[in-house]
Design a binder for these strands. Structure first.
Lengths: 223, 223
DNA sequence: TTTTTATGAAAGCAATACTATTATATTTGT
DNA sequence: ACAAATATAATAGTATTGCTTTCATAAAAA
């Protein structure tokens, strides 16, 4: 996996950026350190000026890559979904049995990303924390319909459709395959958030994880 | 229900406001019109200055009620959860059968709030739209742990616990009653959001609603 | 009728979220 | 090696945000 990703490039819809951050040293530094800074101070308090001073660059240079911090968040989200889609495809590709395949898929999309694969300048486990805490802000805006039309959420929607297909493979007449798919994906993130900030309304511990919960839920529903 | 609510007062944790908006004409106008304005322009674009000019009041007067727009959002969210809890209690109180009770509860928390009960200055159906689109921003912040300790999310958590109790009534040994409860509540909101903005990844129409989806899901899981 | 309380008007302030201009590196093509 | 193109930096500027402060006035309560 590590090897493959060093050859492949994670591909983000290109209307999100003004200049592809993957094509320069400064661009990569922007991505790398924006992840750390957003994680540290939160998206609301994050500014291009602060990021610029962290990486020794001028604010105006950052605006050449992204027209706003909102677009940067869209970029980070898309990158994460593309990375997750990659894991999903690679790790389930060779599984023939439909039930095993779906179980594996649920595991992949609901697990806590705790390790950085170190294949690039992007730290996936810190990015995962941003996805849990901030990513929904990328679509909870008044611009969502316009941006959806512009294709900014394609990768995300593709993952949902992949999960849907795996569900329909097992139960072709299930009416809510898409709804279930999005509930697993978004619900997984939310359950991890609750575990960290509202533990009194979760049931998780070492042996009982969101992955178990969703696996059981899906099994009972479509089998 | 309408009658009862005209006697009862929806109670919001009192540390959220500086001065209780229910105690004055201006206070009520702030709540009433903030709901319309946030719905119209979105929480990010909403300012006390804009609200002030809508209601013919000075910005500085609004700050006497809420120390920030974030606190106002917390207030609106808490108000909504308190209102929902009220519906939940009233509408399920007299149901003896545990399964019927839970089914009714799922219906209440996942249904689209389309009508304004007109018992007060608060338009519940517009407030519901704010809950769907903006409420998660009230806890997706760096202040969440401090605010949780201060009790700002008590009403929300109480609803989850009420749902948990209903689930455990049916299946006392179920390990994920709280997880399931929060998945229903939050998932319901998210599914309504998707229906409006990402319809291509939902399965809903007139006959297939989020309520049906979650009802089926829960039935299969705990029965 | 005093005095307390609520609201309004105006000004001020540091920070945000950018844009624009000009200068200086750095890279690239010939 | 040199000119041209491109990328980055430095500086300044702007409207708006998210408040706070001060002082004046109006309304309500003691």
């Amino acid at each position: 996996m590590k090897n493959l990703l060093s050859v492949l490039k994670i591909s983000v819809p290109d209307k999100i950026f003004l200049k592809d951050p993957e094509t320069s040293v400064l661009g990569k530094k922007i991505i790398e350190h924006s992840i750390f800074l957003i994680d540290e101070i939160g998206f609301e308090n994050f500014t291009f000026k602060k990021l610029g001073s962290k990486i020794g660059s001028n604010e105006s240079s950052l605006y050449r890559y992204f027209e706003s911090k909102h677009k940067l968040l869209l970029y980070l989200s898309s990158w994460y979904w593309a990375w997750l889609e990659y894991q999903l495809v690679i790790e389930t590709y060779s599984i023939a049995n439909a039930k095993d395949k779906l179980e594996k898929a649920i595991h992949i999309v609901t697990r806590n990303v705790e390790l950085d694969s170190n294949f690039s300048h992007i730290n996936e486990s810190v990015l995962y924390k941003i996805i849990v805490n901030e990513s929904s802000k990328s679509f909870l805006t008044k611009k969502v319909d316009k941006e959806n039309k512009a294709g900014y959420f394609e990768v995300y929607k593709r993952i949902i459709v992949r999960l849907e297909q795996m569900i329909l493979e097992i139960k072709p007449d299930y009416k809510y395959a898409l709804s279930l798919a999005s509930t697993i994906l978004e619900g997984g993130l939310r359950q991890h958030f609750l575990t960290e900030h509202f533990p009194s309304i979760t049931n998780y511990n070492k042996n009982n994880t969101p992955t178990h919960f969703f696996t059981q839920l899906v099994k009972n529903t479509i089998q």
